[in-house]
């Protein structure tokens, strides 16, 4: 589904990714771990199409198509979704209106008519129940005054509605208490199927107890320096990242 070859990316002439290789197949869950500043969030943003980042070398193939030239919305229309580490507050736009616009713009891009209002309501109701989101919450301005947990739950709620092929969860666990973590993880697990894939970006192993990865990769200095299975996550939790840095330097 996703194939990243020798990806180099920079922001304001500062190199951040220095040759990332990664392949994610349908049905798989990949975890990307790494110390602060290793380039994890940059990798997520580059896949999602953030314009501030310049891809200098390498390529990102999504379903065998190079998506380098595609705008963020076009990538979204193809089925790429990123859950933000810091979801943006948009005063004046309600959660419901935001989702309606997102759904109908995605449908428009696929040549479909707007979703009928009753179908839309049903979808929103169904998915809000999955994420245990209160009805009142939906008429509030997007992310404005939301707690950390509410913001993250709202991200997964959006994911549930948009049903992406590839979901990238950027530090979704940060700022979550254990109950919220369980709700979010449960939401992600329910949405998982053999046809879609998930990349979980995290600093800690905690979330991986709930969303169990098939593969774990360690990103360091803009490169994947080690890959393994879920046991690698446990090892990192126990020993920290220093041994990896030493291994790389050796």
């Amino acid at each position: 589904m996703l194939k990243i070859n020798n990806l180099h990316a920079s922001v304001e002439d500062k190199a951040i990714l220095r040759g990332v290789n990664l392949e994610v197949k349908a049905g798989e869950v990949h975890a990307i771990m790494g110390p602060n500043g290793s380039g994890k969030s940059t990798l997520a943003a580059v896949i999602a199409g953030k314009e501030e980042y310049d891809v200098e070398e390498g390529e990102i193939l999504f379903e065998n198509e190079n998506i380098d030239e595609l705008a963020a919305e076009e990538r979204a229309h193809k089925g790429i979704f990123m859950s933000f580490q810091y979801p943006v507050e948009i005063p004046g736009v309600s959660v419901t209106n935001f989702m309606k616009t997102a759904i109908n713009e995605t449908r428009k891009a696929k040549g479909l008519e707007d979703m009928p209002a009753n179908e839309m309501l049903k979808l929103i109701r169904e998915k809000s129940e999955l994420l245990e989101i209160d009805r009142k919450f939906l008429s509030r301005s997007l992310n404005e005054g939301f707690s950390g947990g509410e913001k993250k739950r709202n991200e997964i709620f959006q994911m549930a509605i948009l049903e992406p092929k590839l979901a990238i969860l950027d530090e979704t666990d940060s700022g979550l208490d254990i109950d919220a973590l369980r709700i979010v993880a449960n939401g992600v697990n329910k949405l998982k199927s053999k046809d879609n894939a998930v990349i979980v970006i995290t600093h800690y192993q905690r979330l991986l107890d709930y969303i169990v990865p098939d593969f774990v990769h360690v990103l360091h200095n803009g490169k994947i320096v080690k890959s393994g299975t879920k046991e690698l996550a446990h090892e990192l939790e126990e020993k920290g990242y220093d041994w990896i840095k030493e291994e790389v330097n050796a």
Binding site: A71, A72, M82, A102
Partner: peptide
Amino acid sequence: DESAMFYMRSRGIPE
């Protein structure tokens, strides 16, 4: 707000 723009676009809402 550029970050709000990217957020919305990443949800499929064109520029």
